[in-house]
Write a protein that binds this DNA or RNA. Structure first.
Lengths: 246, 246
DNA sequence: CCAAAAGTGTTAGGAGTACACCCATGA
DNA sequence: TCATGGGTGTACTCCTAACACTTTTGG
């Protein structure tokens, strides 16, 4: 085992969490003193990879070390390697020097992850005091380190693209969910309103979204029927499906 | 300028070319002697990046150096960084030693490119004697170096995904093309037959595919009407469009 | 009984699909 | 005149989109 770090390759995690209202993203606060001025900004959890790790392994390890999260949906976005990605903001350089960072050119390979933040769910999340969830639209307005704004935009675009054709909504929901919760995810991610009746008609045709004999508890209105996602049924169906848009 | 190479990061180019019949991919033949046995196999054009280059710049430079191609559609796939990607085949190691390769772990960042190989088109392609086009289905059956089989599969899947929603077919065609040529691209890439009348009906509704007052020449059958792709019209339209599949 | 969200059908228009024959050209 | 691919219309089905009221629960 060779646990030395690769000095010029890192991974970052863009963790999206849905709390029934907003799509949130997890950021780590960072304080920097640069030329006597104190700055506060935000970055994704991330670190250099090790010599003895695959990229996916690194990404899982780093996410677990920084947040406690494991066994969640995770997918590589692409590599970001602009020459000046670490150096174009002078305060980023001050920070790198302060943590004895060995190189001034690092290629980062961001991943995005999806988790469910509904109340009462325990996903193992252990945030340290510097970590905080932000609704995506607020996160975009923060001061983000390095090229992390660009990475966030790319992650969002990728998430939207994959949501169109893959059953990712269920990664953002608890195992048992209502149709309103499901609809809300699409509304939030695609920033549009959907018609409730048409949405439900569509869902009714999807055999892999299966109704349970259970209802919500403790809500101060008519409780909704709960559904689950059947991965088995989904896999079987998708072997023959196809769609084509020019 | 710092033209030294980054010893552990490379780019590879998966170049797809359409010749009116097949989707082809460009491979470079490689001869290796390993433990006294001569092997012949194939790899994508690729090389280590330089310290002074962005990833996209590296990819463009390396493609130009190895094939003469420039100004063509090119897009990053993702990073491939499995621990054993260079070492799992012993003959790959022999080759790396023979070219004095400095590291035994290299993360590669493949790009895919699209070009038109129709007769009579000059795209600046200058192939050396080791480079050869193969129809994709044949290429998959060849001995490919490293993880290049995996990269090819990923590139194909990405190409298919992007073809569904982006006007990439036109990158594979000459500026003036017939509807049959266009249809053929979709048939080849999606490995399915399309109905000619339905296809043309669909195209007729796309304002960015514009008919010209020109026909094919030198064909021994009724000459087809030629069309062009209007990028301007396309851009204007796409600002409001949306589609959503669960 | 009020507030809040759940749940439910119909209609009209548009898109997709299946399908077969005549036309223009070069050899 | 033959071979080759170019070019065309209709009918049916299915999906989408628009739209408003009743039901169930907790407070």
């Amino acid at each position: 085992m060779d646990k030395r770090l690769v000095p010029n390759v890192s991974v970052d995690s863009v963790v999206f969490g849905f709390d029934s209202i907003h799509l949130n993203v997890l950021l780590i606060g960072r304080s920097i003193v640069h030329e006597g001025i104190q700055y506060h900004d935000w970055k994704f959890p991330g670190d250099l990879i090790r010599w003895d790790e695959d990229l996916d392994t690194s990404s899982k390890r780093i996410l677990k070390e920084l947040t406690g999260l494991e066994n969640i949906y995770m997918k590589q976005l692409k590599a970001f390697g602009a020459l000046d990605r670490l150096t174009k903001r002078p305060r980023d350089m001050s920070w790198l020097i302060s943590i004895d960072h060995p190189e001034n050119r690092v290629i980062t390979i961001p991943y995005y992850s999806l988790i469910n933040l509904s109340k009462g769910t325990d996903n193992g999340l252990k945030l340290n005091e510097n970590a905080k969830w932000f609704p995506v639209n607020e996160a975009k307005k923060l001061q983000l380190a390095f090229d992390h704004y660009e990475i966030l935009e790319f992650a969002l675009e990728t998430l939207r693209n994959e949501m169109r054709t893959k059953p990712l909504a269920f990664e953002l929901l608890p195992p048992k969910f209502s149709l309103s919760q499901l609809q809300k995810i699409y509304e939030v991610i695609f920033e549009m309103n959907l018609d409730k009746r048409n949405f439900r008609k569509k869902i009714a045709n999807l055999s892999y979204i299966v109704p349970l004999n259970e209802k919500e508890n403790d809500v101060s209105h008519r409780p909704a029927k709960l559904y689950m996602f059947s991965r088995d049924v989904y896999q079987k169906l998708k072997s023959q499906n196809f769609d084509f848009t020019i």
